[in-house]
Design a protein around this nucleic acid. Structure first.
Lengths: 190, 190
DNA sequence: GTCTATATATTGATAGAC
DNA sequence: GTCTATCAATATATAGAC
């Protein structure tokens, strides 16, 4: 099961390479050639799989969505307590601090870049924010905060984005740790 | 006084146009040609004033620095109370909400973009963060929070960045207003 | 499905007459 | 200080033999 044909595997390889390159160098900062080289393909061959660079980004966003959906499902499975589930979100941040300090938040930096000049693509990548927004809001509902659930979800998302951004700008993992501790306190006191 | 020679005025025009273009479309998203056109110059002429695009960015950063230094001085002059001075920082965010929702924070989005692939330039643009970081920390010192002044400054900067980012991603001015109200409360209760 | 060769546009940047 | 012409590099993208 889960067997991929050769073409499917090549396609999956391209998307995985592109995701990492987009994360490390940005969408605009990643050339078609860079993706081709990283994938071990030959120059013109990539066009057999993707017509345009924008198509690759769409596939990268879908891969992100699938991965994060699986992660959220895992958090829900691991614990029934809504506060523990919210803490799992914060744990993700501290657990990924090394890459966050180096490259920033994969969702935030992507959206931020695309929002400037590629509003069509930004709309697609905003689905990643929506995924977390809705999941977090559902947890706040579980806590009985139905009225303010969405506002609380956006607040927490914003806090997380701010932390990731400052930690990225100053390349400071200690700051990230200190700030996530405050987030944990905030959740505990809800 | 303050008279600019023709060359100096042309140079200042280029920098002002570049600043706006970098803000609206990003550094990488702004071509040399775009700056030339916006400045009303002729194609090759811009190289008389700036050897490289990176040089233009340096000048843009310095323009930003000068403007923000003047703004901070104005806030200090307007009120002696440290809390009121901190509130002036928050007022800036709400006062600029239209452009923040449209293009994000000029400092944050610039740093975020450059941090990905142009670490040399990011280091220069980080001076803009340092300017606010040091100024905010000085205000927390005035409040007697000497030990935690820098941590509080970075916390406030992060909160502001997170708010700007989410408001930008969702193009939502109401969210920005709601979140800055919370920042105001946070400052009042210090 | 793979590979070579190439088209076409745009980029940042330069040389040199005026 | 202004303008024209142009360069070299790189970008995305295509055609077509194998």
């Amino acid at each position: 099961m889960n067997a991929l044909s050769k073409g499917e595997k090549t396609r999956a390889d391209i998307v995985e390479c592109a995701r990492q390159l987009f994360y490390e160098h940005g969408y605009d900062g990643t050339s078609f050639s860079a993706i081709v080289e990283a994938s071990g393909l030959v120059r013109g061959n990539i066009y057999h799989y993707f017509k345009t660079k924008d198509d690759i980004l769409q596939a990268v966003i879908e891969l992100h969505l699938a991965d994060y959906r699986a992660l959220l499902a895992q958090w829900e499975k691991a614990d029934d307590d809504p506060k523990m589930r919210l803490l799992a979100f914060v744990e993700m941040i501290t657990g990924r601090k090394t890459e966050l300090v180096k490259y920033g938040c994969p969702i935030g930096t992507l959206n931020s870049e695309l929002a400037k000049d590629r509003r069509d693509l930004q709309q697609a990548s905003r689905a990643l924010f929506d995924l977390f927004r809705d999941w977090l809001a559902a947890r706040f509902c579980e806590l009985g905060k139905n009225e303010e659930a969405d506002a609380l979800a956006l607040h927490l998302l914003g806090r997380a984005q701010g932390i990731a951004m400052i930690a990225h700008v100053y390349r400071d993992a200690k700051l990230l740790r200190r700030e996530t501790d405050q987030l944990r306190d905030w959740i505990s006191q809800l």
